[in-house]
Design a protein around this nucleic acid. Sequence first.
RNA 1: GCCUCUGUAGCUCAGUGGAAGAGCAGAUCCGUCCUAAGGAUAUGGCCGGGGGUUCGAAUCCCUCCAGGGGCACCA
Length: 860
Amino acid sequence: MAHEHEHDRSAADEASEYDIPAIERKWQGVWDELKPFASGNPEDKRPRKYVLDMFPYPSGDLHMGHAEAYALGDVIARYWRLQGFNVMHPIGWDSFGLPAENAAIKRGIDPRVWTYANIDQQKASMRRYAASFDWDRELHTSDPEYYKWNQWLFLELFKKGLAYRKDSWVNWDPVDQTVLANEQVLPDGTSERSGAIVVKKKKTQWYFKITDYADRLLDDLNQLEGAWPSKVIAMQRNWIGRSVGADVDFEIEGRAEKVTVFTTRPDTLYGATFMVVAPDSDLAAELVAGSTATARMAFQDYLEQVQKSTEIERQDASRPKTGVSLDRFAINPVTGERMPIWVADYVLADYGHGAVMAVPAHDQRDLDFAIKFDLPIRVVVDTNAPITTSIPVLELDENGEAILPDDLPPLDPRSTGTALTGDGRMINSGPIDGLSKTHAIKKIIEQLSAAGNGRAAKTYRLRDWLISRQRYWGTPIPIIHGSDGALLPVSEDQLPILLPPTEGLDLQPKGQSPLGAAEEWVNVPDPRDGSPALRDPDTMDTFVDSSWYFLRFLNPNDETQAFDPRLADKWAPVDQYVGGVTHAILHLLYARFITKVLFDLGYVGFTEPFTALLNQGMVLMEGSAMSKSKGNIVSLSEQLDLHGVDAVRLTMAFAGPPEDDIDWADVAPAASAKFLKRAWRLAGDVTSSPDIEWRTGDQALRRLTHRFLAEGPGLIEAFKFNVLVAKIMELVNATRKAIDTGAGGGDAAVREATEVIAIALSLFAPYTAEEMWQKLGYEPTVALAGWRKADPTLLVEDSVTAIIQVDGKVRDRVTVSPKIGSDELEKLARASAGVVRAVGDREIVNVIVRAPRVVNIATK
RNA sequence: GCCUCUGUAGCUCAGUGGAAGAGCAGAUCCGUCCUAAGGAUAUGGCCGGGGGUUCGAAUCCCUCCAGGGGCACCA
């Protein structure tokens, strides 16, 4: 620090001190005035990019997880701005939902009050955090101006038959007293929100018909390959769970209608020796009703036992098989054999048709069951037979059996206990004998189709999206129930249907929507004839809100439409989406679905909402997720007060690859703060003026600077933020060295490097970067300074070191021109002292030359 | 059980056929009334183990081990 400042430090201007709180205050004001992150100017000629962070639920204050996500998303937004793009980087609030309602109940206040107070608080923290959001686009999903368009969207789906009511078994959360979508139930059978064990209830509810889009949701994942994390793509594929096979109809003795089952292995139909029906299915109840009294009693006992078991128990595949016979029979359509019908809980009521044809020889579950209950087993695929891609021609003996090598294991699943699930050659299967699996499947489907008792079929694990919720703080469903049961859509000019005030309403969860008790609200005239009718009392799943919010950001204040299709053409889909992997299925699947619906309705011209996706990891503390119960919560505001916003943001970016978790115990925000101050000091030590001629500067430092400029964009675009930060550190160290022991503070290369450092740091540490930029003699803002182009002449080295190996070991090295020829390099290598010594009197058998980098001399 | 990702310095990670690297932390020294800021220097590695391919392997192939994630009675 210069001496003259030491005497009047108290009066020193802000710029001569690295006074973090003062710097933060100063630049927030400047940004508010300059609005460098506004993206709404229609005259703006820059190319456009849409960078979106998943919007937060307003829980009260920012936490470490938000801090990581918004730091990383901001790096990308700021980077594209430096590359000359008009970047739309909006933020809003996912402000409907249960936490607000539960908090309101606890405190006896309106959820609105709690929600909007939280938003105010959280917004202040966010502004301090200096994410480069375009605040002009802020939206709240709990505003009537927003949820009006949820209702519009619902009606669009209703008109298309994609929103419908059905009576079905639903997931019921006994704590929050509401139904849940399948996606909101964790694999262990608990609610993702309340943690309660979810139970099944039979209820009539609203669904969105996402299963109509199952194929497109699955197939379009291919477009996202490489642009979305492969983990998320895999999870979505699993979730949709398409199986390809056939439906086969079985005649039932004593029943007029056939029973259809789905199978992925229609080729094994000749080996189907019994049928298994889900115990909790309507089919089982009906079949047993027509059976003997003994069967009915056994079934009743079994059903009760099944219904007592939890979802977790039921999902344990290692559990021994259980079941009872219904004493009814199906007829195998190809063999004509009688097949006993059993019920067993390994068959699920809500998958396929709730019944399976059991092929014990070739399916492990069926085999386990057949062995336990001594049911017939017939092998129909010879898995020992060789497979060819065409119809195989095999050596057969006089009985028509394939001639096999002696050492193959026998085909006897009953004694081995292992089903033969592999490919092979069909046997015991009449007209399809001799075929391989693929051909047999094709042929049997043809035969079944021709006979009218089967057809090709697909089935999915994906279920329709249950969107009704029996709670207050959400979007009212725009449907009126006529006294005759008619479902009457509210006309669009009546929207929004506002939530009634909470006064006089009991929000306490009790299994029925609190809205149903709002007499004045719920009782409406039938739009057809004015007779008494009722509003639908349920509210929508808040995932409806977030399934299209990225479009509302385009013109969040538009009162005439949900979004402007012309703006959607310009800005959407989102170029870069950033958020946690917790939404890998839920939100992302729903948003993809709604986007495809909007495409089909002609509102948007694209079918995928998020072109690229980055999942950031979690912030942990000492190896585990931060939680109140563990008592390991690190307070973000404390960290910000301690180290400054810039240091915390830099730490988030530097800690590792963005998708990895950050353990706050392993990182050093204080070291980041130290580094930032070190970088900041460079700007004060630059004594040249901005118009200095770069070319006169120190060449070594210039080379380093321009190599940095050349590789920076690739690192950012590959999300290797941590690597870029390490490179900035290197550049800072080299510049420091040039100032102290080399070219000095007046050198042009020192100024150039420091400017580049300020620009690069603006991605991670905006306050420090602005401060440096100003010290270097420029007007704000560094955020729009632009990423400089690397000078290609500074990227080529004028000499390189070639290594000389003898038998793979380095024995010498020579400094050569990067353009040296192979012959010349080989000559140099053979003559080198190290090589002569190492080779000695051995014979040289081979010389590999890779000019200009390496020569390897092999000896005998 | 199946699928998938990851094992490189104390920590976080680069490097993905051609000399094992960076940042941070730690160590020592300079500096200082003390502390700190600041600066300098050196240290630190069976590249998870084993086998193979190659003139040459951290890098490619096989196999095993360890850890993370996902799926799992879905016919």
